Computed example of a mutant assay.
Amino acid sequence: MNPEALLEVDDLRVRYPVYEGPFGKRTGYVNAVDGVSFALNRGETLGLVGESGCGKSTLGRTLLALQEANGGRVLFQGQDLFSLSRPDLKRVRRSAQFVFQNPRTCFDPRRTVGSSVRMALDIQNYLDPRMRDEAVANIFLKVGLRPEHRSRYPHELSGGQLQRIAIARALILRPSLLVCDEPVSALDVSVQAQILNLLKDLRDEFELAMIFVSHNLAVVEYIADRVAVMYYGRVVEAGPTRVIFENPQHPYTKALLAAVPSIDLAQRDDPLPKLGDPPDPTRLPSGCRFRTRCPIATARCAEEEPADVRFPHGHTVACFAASA
């Protein structure tokens, strides 16, 4: 166990059964998270990137025990989350909050948004009851909303406003860990910048650690200290943000970065890599699961699953073509 780490993940595994036919016979499994390990320090932000279906959102939910794991463990502040009782897990979650991607599904339509945010304080018995309304008003201001928005219902607000309120609800408990699942995808560019700057300011002020799930590589590059690239449940490349963006080693990472839109006309002349269709997640290729789309795959890739190659500065790459 790393005494300096706020969060430690060891060989985490999550799989979903697949049922087919008129009688719902189980025919296999999808390994949404397949042997993921990493550590996160206080005040550090880890960006999780990858295509849709790569397992990054499932990983984020499992880190807070919102999703049951099939193997491995998650240590938060030295405690194994999967072994805690429900009262102990409730206590721990005051320090570890989640921001969901779709805010319209995480608010009670019968409650005002102000009462929904205050409910987090009430459930956790945080702050004096007489101070809670003032705390809600203050957090609304911090995310760019007026205190009078507290009296509105979810259907009266835009998706962007609701996402800011979802962030406010997570931040009002002053957690030490925030897991964000596409938290700015519903916002326009100007509001995205405001929220990202707010999260960075809060991270510096409260030593807030973050797991930041996003398909937007530009956002990840701006906010993350480290990046983990996921492909069908596995982390295929991880390291400091600058290293990943300036010197990617895995063919999948290179393809993701090459697909980022650019206004540089010279870059537009370079053809995008043709990776082909993704495989069936219930029948992944043998050996390296990326080999059927990889432009440099060899016969060895079909026979063995590559282990991590370690570069300086904590940079790891799961590819036979990488050499330290």
Rank of each mutant, 00 (worst) to 15 (best):
S214R: 01
M119N: 15
R110Y: 15
I195T: 11
K142P: 12
D201R: 13
V213C: 06
R104A: 12
M131L: 15
N125G: 15
V117G: 09
N138K: 14
R104K: 12
A120E: 09
N138P: 14
P109H: 00
L141A: 12
T112W: 01
I165G: 02
E182A: 10
R164M: 03
Q124K: 13
H155W: 02
R111P: 13
I167A: 06
P147L: 00
A224G: 05
V136E: 10
A224F: 07
R110E: 14
E207M: 10
P154Q: 09
D181Q: 02
Q101G: 08
L198G: 11
Y153H: 06
L208D: 07
G159H: 04
R169M: 05
G159A: 04
Q97N: 03
D201K: 14
I211N: 11
L208S: 09
S185V: 08
I211P: 10
D201Y: 11
D188N: 03
F206H: 13
E156V: 03
P183V: 06
L177R: 07
R150S: 14
L187P: 10
I195Y: 03
R104Y: 15
V99W: 07
A120Y: 00
R111W: 13
A186R: 00
N197M: 07
Y126S: 11
A135M: 08
Q192I: 01
V219T: 07
P147K: 10
G144N: 01
P129A: 02
A137F: 04
A168F: 01
E205F: 06
R146V: 12
Y153Q: 11
D225T: 07
D188H: 03
I211V: 08
E221L: 10
A120F: 00
A218K: 13
P147R: 05
F140Q: 02
Y222E: 09
V191M: 05
L177W: 04
A209S: 10
I195A: 07
M131Q: 15
V113A: 10
P109G: 01
P109S: 01
R203N: 08
K200A: 15
